[in-house]
């Protein structure tokens, strides 16, 4: 007896978002990065098209990460106190599709760097690499509202992705994106209703749907990641059933979440070799987010990125 494989017909599709602008488009990027566009669930080519593969970005901090464990520091050599050199290494040596520049130095509890200092770092990283740039604030709303306008202007026309807009603080960053031709990360605390609400707030301020990337704050493997999986999956299903306000591509932060887990860094011989544990924790977390429907991963360890890239290649149709 012949078995008919049931094929779901979806009425909607994930929207498409392009990061980065080339010289003809008013920027200086040599490469742009297009996310989304699927009319099916992740990797399920049987039911629809997957025009753009998921992308892997690497994160660069603008202040040397003193607390990073040795297995994480090792591959970077001596670039960890130079964001531009760090970014170059990520792109040229490790094959990152985009760079996330995290402005940790702006944190008022830490170095409290000025908006001008942060903008200068943005300029240097933009000059050093030619891939699209994601500029991510320090997480302090008041400080980010001072830092983001300066950084946005420094990168005007480059079609950067600015992060993050949250329900309580979205107006400044959205205004920056509108003024300087950037895109915005719409953030929610692992809550699909709040994600939709932030999206509607951004669109009502005039930001088009194709300039929004969604981000649910998630944990890593072992830290409630199952819940994150179901939220991302439900968001994808909403897009496929036609909910335009949940149809934007999704970003997931993997590196910092995975290396927060003690399993990644605690020197406990019974848990296996320390040099591999964090890498595997990050790669496994990344694989899970890709299967849940994420479009853009923010990675830390180059070996974890290589493992995920190998998985993506293996899952490509021959």
């Amino acid at each position: 007896m012949e078995l008919a494989i049931p094929v779901e017909q979806w009425s909607g599709a994930v929207g498409t978002v392009t990061l980065g602008a080339t010289a003809e488009q008013g920027g200086t990027r040599r490469r742009t990065l297009t996310l989304g566009g699927e009319s099916t669930l992740p990797f399920l080519r049987l039911e629809g098209a997957i025009p753009n593969p998921p992308a892997l970005a690497m994160e660069v901090l603008d202040a040397s990460p003193e607390k990073w464990p040795e297995p994480l520091r090792a591959p970077f050599g001596n670039v960890l106190d130079d964001p531009a050199a760090w970014a170059v290494k990520c792109v040229e040596e490790f094959g990152a599709d985009a760079i996330v520049l995290r402005l940790v130095s702006a944190d008022p509890q830490g170095q409290d760097a000025s908006p001008e200092q942060c903008a200068e770092t943005v300029r240097r990283v933009l000059q050093a690499v030619s891939v699209p740039l994601i500029i991510w604030g320090c997480g302090d709303n008041d400080k980010d509202n001072l830092v983001m306008p300066a950084c946005s202007q420094a990168a005007a026309g480059e079609r950067c992705l600015l992060g993050t807009a949250v329900q309580e603080n979205y107006k400044t960053i959205t205004a920056c994106a509108l003024a300087d031709g950037h895109l915005v990360i719409s953030e929610a605390p692992l809550d699909i209703s709040i994600q939709k609400q932030v999206n509607i707030l951004l669109t009502e301020q005039g930001l088009p749907l194709d300039r929004i990337v969604m981000y649910q704050v998630t944990g890593a493997l072992g830290y409630g990641v199952e819940y994150a999986y179901s939220i991302l999956e439900r968001t994808r299903l909403a897009a496929l059933t036609g909910d335009k306000m949940l149809s934007m591509p999704m970003l997931s932060v993997v590196g910092s979440e995975a290396w927060k887990a003690k399993e990644s860094w605690l020197d406990e011989p019974k848990w296996g070799a320390l040099e591999r544990r964090g890498i595997l924790w990050e790669a496994a977390t990344a694989a899970l987010f890709l299967h849940a429907g994420s479009h853009l991963l923010v990675m830390w360890h180059p070996e974890a990125l290589r493992l995920v890239r190998a998985m993506l290649t293996a899952l490509q149709p021959a």
């Binding site: 209703s193 994600q195 939709k196 609400q197 509607i200 009502e204 439900r234 909910d243 335009k244 306000m245």
Partner: peptide
């Protein structure tokens, strides 16, 4: 999907 402004979200 519910959100606080679900009527506006639907219309938008």
């Amino acid at each position: 999907v519910y959100c606080d402004d679900f009527v506006r979200a639907y219309r938008a």
